[in-house]
Design a protein around this nucleic acid. Structure first.
Length: 377
RNA sequence: UCCGGAGUAGCUCAAUGGCGGAGCAGGCGGCUGUUAACCGCAAGGUUGUGAGUUCGAGUCUCACCCCCGGAG
């Protein structure tokens, strides 16, 4: 039995834990460390797939929960799968709907069987379970499927997280049992496990042991970057990645600000995803090599220069800050398109620079150079 | 010229004679496995002008100014 997704670890940095690798998937290879743009509803918001590809993205995300509610996974399956449906032919990773357990807050109820949600669209009741999540993700046909987990809230205490983790582990077992039913399914898609355990390292360790024993093709770290202070995040990051197997890809879920990306890569993370670049773009904020630029600000009213003088993305090659500010203030759709393209390009390109730096044994120097220029985060 | 209506924040409008507000615009901030083209904060005023009644007037009275509609 050959796993659909395999990881080739090419190099580990001499001075840090940064890694260089390649993820082999049914829809092509992905060079790691990688940033994955998020396309929750079968679209990276405000972007055409060919633009996402052109700016260098090699893999994107889709979401089980959203696509299940609308248009329905059967319809995506009928369309020939998510790749064909949305006209994206490179790898896709689907989140399990587990995060919605956390983000939907009061609108859901957790039981042993699964989670009962109320649809944000029409209020109708739905049950998402490990088996259901797998069924949906198999219908979507993503390359990488995520296990159905509970992402505990940051304020959860040890007792709560311990129980939550035990449930997440039982759910992982059910996900695996469901997916590993036939060889055929395993060769078509791969299931990644998720490390949980809140901000308690003993639980993170316990979680890592459990999921590692499942011998899955990849693992992620969940439940971080959910509102905790940066020191707490960094403290967790000092230990959590290394609790996972070295030879498997490590995916830090939901992380996307440049500093978190650097800190993650430095500690051995291979994959990241985040809505941040596309969301803040739609809200008028961009990341540049010299720090954040809030395009709304009056100071850009007559600024004829590009967003980022060091950027060679389509937006920076062709448009001035003054024009982009005008588009944003006028609520023109093009504003979201151009700013999203820039932000995605910026993160994808920064990851590429990190890979080159690791390859050339100058990752710490590159990190310092980036931080010095970027300034406050 | 007469009749009617109206003048309150940049704009559109609220406010039984009892602490002048809202939406939008303008300024600024936040956003991290997307319920988010979203959310929040601050600022913004001699209530057209002048007089009067009243303990107290955006509100009632008078005059004037300006705007809108109608008549001539």
């Amino acid at each position: 039995m050959k796993n659909a997704v395999t990881f080739e670890l090419k190099k580990t940095d001499d001075r840090t834990r940064a890694r260089l690798g390649t993820l082999h998937t049914p829809h092509g290879d992905v060079q790691t460390p990688v940033f994955m743009p998020v396309g929750t509803q079968a679209t990276v918001k405000a972007m055409k797939p060919e633009e996402v590809e052109k700016l260098g993205a090699e893999i994107i995300l889709g979401n089980t929960y959203h696509l299940y509610l609308r248009p329905g996974h059967e319809i995506v399956k009928e369309a020939g799968g998510l790749h064909k449906f949305m006209n994206w032919h490179k790898p896709i990773l689907t989140d399990s709907g587990g995060f919605q357990v956390f983000s939907l807050g009061h609108m859901r109820k957790i039981t042993e069987e699964g989670v009962t949600f109320r649809s944000y669209l029409d209020g109708s009741k739905h049950m998402l379970s490990p088996e259901k999540s797998m069924e949906i993700q198999e219908a979507l046909g993503s390359d990488i499927m995520m296990a159905f987990d509970e992402c505990a809230p940051p304020e959860a205490d040890h007792k709560y997280v311990e129980k939550s983790l035990a449930l997440t582990n039982r759910w992982l077992k059910r996900c695996k049992d469901y997916h590993y039913e036939t060889e055929d399914k395993v060769e078509r898609q791969s299931l990644f496990g998720i490390q949980q355990g809140g901000f308690f390292k003993d639980l993170r360790k316990e979680s890592s042991k459990f999921i590692s024993d499942m011998d899955l093709p990849g693992y992620s770290i969940g439940g971080l970057s959910v509102g905790e202070p940066k020191e707490v995040f960094l403290d967790m990051m000092d230990d959590c990645p290394d609790m996972l197997p070295k030879e498997k890809p490590r995916y830090l879920m939901g992380v996307g600000s440049p500093d978190y990306l650097f800190e993650g890569v430095e500690r051995g993370i291979d994959m990241f995803d985040c809505v941040l670049p596309t969301r803040i773009a739609r809200h008028g904020l961009v990341m540049t090599s010299h720090g954040r630029v809030n395009i709304k600000n009056k100071q850009y009213e007559r600024d004829w220069g590009p967003l980022d003088p060091e950027c060679d993305c389509y937006t920076c090659r062709n448009y001035s800050r003054a024009y982009l500010r005008h588009l944003f203030k006028s609520e023109e759709i093009l504003s979201s398109m151009l700013l999203s393209e820039h932000n995605l390009h910026f993160l994808v390109n920064t990851m590429k620079n990190m890979r080159e730096a690791i390859a050339e044994n100058r990752f710490p120097e590159y990190k310092k150079e980036f931080y010095d220029k970027y300034g406050k985060f």
